[in-house]
Amino acid sequence: MAFDELVNHITPEVRAVIGARSDWQEAPHPVEASEVRRFFQALMDPNPRYWDDEHAAGTRYGALVAPPGFPVHAFRRPADELNDSLAAAGDPDFDGLSRAMRPGLPKLPIPLSGILNGGYEYEFYSYPKVGERIQCRSAYLDIYQKQGKAGPMVMVVIEDEYRAADGRPLLKSLNTMIMR
């Protein structure tokens, strides 16, 4: 414990990536009607703006849309990504996720294996429309260390900006990830 307390994970290498911002990345495929359907069915949100063409045409969105937080999940495994992340699933310690925080951001040189999602701050501007492409860019806004009960925790604050391919803003999020 005494040694743990002395560990400082905020090394010069970590400090060097604070402020790093990715280029705009585009989701591998346009927003699909079936993808939206599975989303709102699993959310149990039957709002007709997501599935009723006639209703959607009469709204200010003008067409079928996806729920406001949908862009956060638009970056799926591309068809041409042949590396299967589940290839490691036989490892008893494999948790099902990779350690990369965001596409286009450098990996964090921090030797902590536990990761928790601390929460989000969202600002919404518009709904994504079925058929359009979603773009995102991300930045490490801040990385700092806190002392937890079980040892040091590193708080990683990531800003994500989402827009439609035509430039229309969709949403902005601040996400705090906790590594420990």
Partner: peptide
Amino acid sequence: LAQVLSDWAGETGWLWKMNFQY
């Protein structure tokens, strides 16, 4: 959380900001 707020705002209002902690 986004659903309860956007349902209440309806098609004439707008859910602008939302934050929460897990």
